[in-house]
Design a protein around this nucleic acid. Structure first.
Lengths: 224, 224
DNA sequence: CGTACGTTCCAGAGAATGTTGGAATGATGG
DNA sequence: CCATCATTCCAACATTCTCTGGAACGTACG
């Protein structure tokens, strides 16, 4: 009777390591974070992450081999997107462990993000309910391209830098919910702060678009 | 207005990478898997993973720095255990992505594990209900030391290799549920197969002890 | 059909990681 | 207080990873 199965088990562990390895580099994490916003070309991603195109390409291919992203050709460009919703869950799991365990991150997160969390966030559930009842104005404060690549149905795109001069578009007597890229994106925080300063009843979505998508909630995506 | 916060965001990504880096090595994944069964000393872990003590010690310290495990001294020994339940979730998230994405793992998993999955597994929920109603015999087929370090309340420890000659301890007219280390452990599979061959109504828990613990279910642990 | 563009492949330098063996540290027990 | 045991620290080497620049590839467009 084969009590143990050391050999295949080892092989499985090695494959775990391949996936983890893919996230074992700050630049790749950043690339994944951007890819999670929607399909992106290589040089777009390179620019966003501050890398050379060659370097970004290499990182992206490593991510592809690890099964975290997939690529498709569109004309002369190659577009990368997340391979699966699970990848967002994976990132969130890493985030939870990183937030708790690593001493340094704690300070960073505390001072830059959680301090602003007094702006009570809105849960997916609550937002879905309010959208259904039509009692809330939802704004997507990410840049136009990211909104175009995919957003929550019913959302209005008002990039953060345009917010001050487009306040007129917002009804003053309705609650406003803002969202952006995710838990490490400050856009929604800033938007809420701006809106509150102007007297609006504004709150932010607990996390961002990728998490909404990963949760299986409806989204508007560009047709492939 | 600071629209972006590139600098702290980068720092956060780097910390993500530190956590991922910790899992970016097959030996460390294996060590974590063993640690997830309960507290273990360094040389115990070294033996289980087939490493030298020195090497295992280094890996474990890296895991500790990344916040995945914690160590405490007990006499001359240093015992390592998981830092948090979240770590189990993290491993499961990596597992899901690894299973789907990497071509090779698929074959391995298919042939060695999932093929046997026809032995319909029992969910946490279902097991908890049945235990409460007292209509099931629960057996822990891991080695004695692992059982001693922590197990599900009400479970009887019958290590797999002792099962054939201890069948007499099991009531023939009650359903039996077997569990072991987790989704990549074959002990429970083998136990169920053995029991069924002898005419018992046997099933296995969907995953193992670490996942039960991570889900916040009650466990019996050795007092510190 | 040739040019332009985006991406990938390739080779090399520099940095980081993994493993090993020996020495040092901490704690226990006579 | 010395001897012993478990673990950690340290130094060295082989291996792997990361980034850069140039060349090659594939696709679209004039």
């Amino acid at each position: 009777m084969a009590v143990s199965s050391a050999s295949p088990k080892r092989a499985v562990f090695v494959q775990f390591a391949v996936v983890a390895q893919a996230l074992a580099n700050g630049h790749r994490v950043e690339l994944i974070e951007h890819v999670a916003q929607g399909e992106r070309s290589v040089d777009e991603l390179a620019r966003l992450a501050g890398l050379t195109v060659t370097n970004a390409s290499q990182h992206l291919q490593l991510l592809r081999r690890a099964g975290l992203v997939v690529a498709r050709r569109a004309g002369k460009q190659v577009l990368y997107r997340l391979a699966d919703r699970d990848v967002v869950d994976l990132l969130m799991a890493v985030r939870r462990t990183a937030e708790r365990g690593v001493a340094e991150i704690d300070k960073i997160v505390q001072s830059y993000f959680h301090a602003r969390d007094s702006l009570e966030p809105v849960s997916h559930e609550e937002l879905a309910d309010r959208l259904r009842d039509g009692v809330v104005t939802l704004i997507d404060v990410r840049p136009g391209e990211e909104f175009a690549a995919g957003h929550i149905p019913g959302a209005v795109n008002i990039p953060l830098d345009e917010l001050p001069r487009r306040l007129g578009e917002l009804p003053a007597d309705r609650a406003i919910v803002a969202y952006c890229r995710g838990p490490y994106c400050v856009f929604a925080f800033e938007a809420v702060a701006t809106l509150r300063a102007k007297g609006y009843e504004a709150r932010r979505l607990a996390d961002g678009y990728p998490q909404w998508w990963a949760a299986g909630r409806p989204v508007v995506e560009v047709a492939a």
